[in-house]
Nucleic acid binder design. Structure first.
Lengths: 338, 338
DNA sequence: AGATCGTTTTGAATCGACTCAAGCTGCGGT
DNA sequence: ACCGCAGCTTGAGTCGATTCAAAACGATCT
């Protein structure tokens, strides 16, 4: 329970606290003999620098918060790994916070992170328009939006979701599908809305194709199963022949529902997912999916943040946008006779 | 960039800093009129309490660190969700840190967490025997081992891995398999070693059964694929007829390799995984797997930690052990003729 | 008016580490 | 013997919030 402070180290080493601080921060300016004495004292006491006190003076910590919509979604795990990789190189710690698409939990996490004076926050917001984010930036905590485009008030890294939705829908249309279900999530989530808009665009451009909505209030596999059951229950004549899912968890759930309801994939129902998480390729029927550069997204977010922190004055907010691409697998392999 | 302090609030509200602090912490003892003036000032300045300074005085923050071996493994995502659920109820924040089974990264995360004076640390250690963990506890940061039993120096929550390994192996033996491959991970990881020991026990008890080792240096799907390719390359006579994988990621990779090599599952090769992550049921061939109470593991870990923090004196370290159970699915469904 | 008591408010001390101007030492040069 | 200087070390002041003994206030009673 003994919490040692710099003062005790100083006493044991028979030097002043200033010297101990120097040993810790600029060892080269301390005489070797003194330095050795201080190190001995540190070892003997098991002293650990109190970052709390340190950053009180210094102002900000070397921690960045990454707030994600769902830790259970491997997409975010991969984004986190990308972020961690670059942060590590800059001696910075990434802490992962899970909002679970709940605005209240998101707010509490943001409060906590701001109160802790983290170096910056990377966030995939539940609601990108929330003034809370602008406030944060205004009060001095840099924010980078992840997987969601900003309006100029902050940096952002994103993937072109409209384009992703469009190529996915275009692919299904090209395969001969004329009734396509869009399986989305909560309407407040921007990514989902954009993917849907992209799909709608492709449908309109094609002509003679219908886009039905089968959205759920969540973006989980369980929600996907529920959506699948609903769609499977439709009379065959009205039932869509393809589903475009807003993420792979939904798609996997949807796929399971098809199997449970005795519909074949892709024969009776083609499926395209989104994110191309590793499990998509390993599914019962390997899933076609829109691939996003997941690690790169996280890595770039940290890059932008470090840039902003390093030169707050001359920094200009940037919006980086990556291109998605479609990976076609068995779940949408068949060509439908028109 | 304006970081408002309690002092500025005090000036604007024309009271002393002590009063502002009282408004923040014990509003009931402040006269209503004064309280209102202070709140107005807080709102006007957009003041946010600096937790760093606060905890310098108070000692510890209301954050617990959860250090996991692999964020990309859904098993840990579920543990994290269990931990978060209970922590939330106690107004405590969980931050997730990823060691990626790298002892160095683990050490850096622990250093950071200790320096930040977190309330406590939940960890699935790369090496449970490391003195670093005992040091932490000795210096006043409570530690709870997750998914790994402790020796009495700290609390722990775990699942009986020997039993898990044993029932998995017994199941395969009962299904008629006589050559079983154990696909493990790095030998330092205790869970893996225990599962293997359990399997070895079952094999020995049965007699006439061989346990081959096909361990990899990682616990990822990619490692599983590599292991699968190696095993598939063996001449059919020497090739095991079943694989027991130390976790589901390995099992999924192994399964993919079987498909790629033209071996049927479970016909040519039965597979049993471990953890029963959600994706196991959705795999190309639904995976049999040893189920662990994932959320409960996280929840209980937080419970033990809160207990220790609340009554440091009277606290006695506890080791909680849960029982795993086997979920049989298609990947090990067939009975082999002897 | 003065004493008394309860309610509010005050402000100095404190937590641990950092910074920096000022002080100390010892050495070489004159 | 004295000066200058480089190399080290010192210690007071600071960051922002909390705590708590003491002061201020105001209402009530004699």
């Amino acid at each position: 329970m003994a919490t040692r402070s710099i003062k005790e180290v100083a006493r044991l080493a028979r030097v002043s606290v200033g010297t101990v601080s120097n040993v810790l921060n600029r060892p080269e300016i301390v005489a070797p003999a003194t330095r050795a004495r201080v190190f001995d004292a540190i070892r003997e006491l098991g002293f650990v620098r109190n970052e709390v006190a340190r950053h009180l003076r210094v102002g900000r910590s070397r921690t960045v918060g990454l707030v994600v919509l769902d830790v259970a979604n491997p997409f975010f795990a991969d984004v986190a790994q990308g972020a961690e990789a670059l942060a590590d190189e800059h001696d910075t710690m990434v802490v992962l916070c899970n909002s679970g698409t709940d605005p209240n939990r998101e707010r509490r996490h943001l409060d906590q992170l701001e109160q802790q004076r983290v170096m910056g926050i990377l966030i995939t917001p539940v609601d990108a328009g929330s003034p809370r984010l602008a406030d944060l930036a205004a009060r001095g905590t840099p924010v980078v939006l992840v997987d969601s485009a900003a309006t100029g008030l902050q940096c952002s890294v994103a993937v072109d979701d409209r384009l992703g939705g469009q190529i996915a829908a275009a692919h299904l249309i090209e395969r001969g599908h004329r009734r396509i279900a869009f399986v989305g999530g909560p309407p407040s989530i921007k990514q989902v809305a954009d993917r849907r808009a992209g799909a709608a665009g492709a449908v309109e451009a094609a002509g003679g194709v219908e886009l039905l909505d089968a959205s759920m209030p969540m973006l989980s596999a369980a929600a996907g199963r529920a959506a699948g059951e609903r769609v499977a229950a439709l009379p065959p004549a009205e039932r869509p022949t393809a589903a475009l899912c807003a993420n792979d968890l939904l798609a996997l759930g949807f796929l399971q529902a098809m199997a449970a309801c005795g519909l074949s994939v892709p024969g009776d129902m083609a499926i395209v997912g989104y994110d191309d998480i590793d499990f998509a390729a390993a599914a019962a029927v390997p899933l076609s999916s829109v691939r996003q550069p997941r690690e790169l997204l996280g890595r770039t977010a940290v890059e932008l943040l470090l840039e902003e922190v390093a030169h707050p004055e001359r920094h200009r907010h940037r919006q980086v946008i990556f291109q998605p691409d479609l990976v076609v697998r068995e779940s949408s392999a068949l060509r439908r006779r028109d």
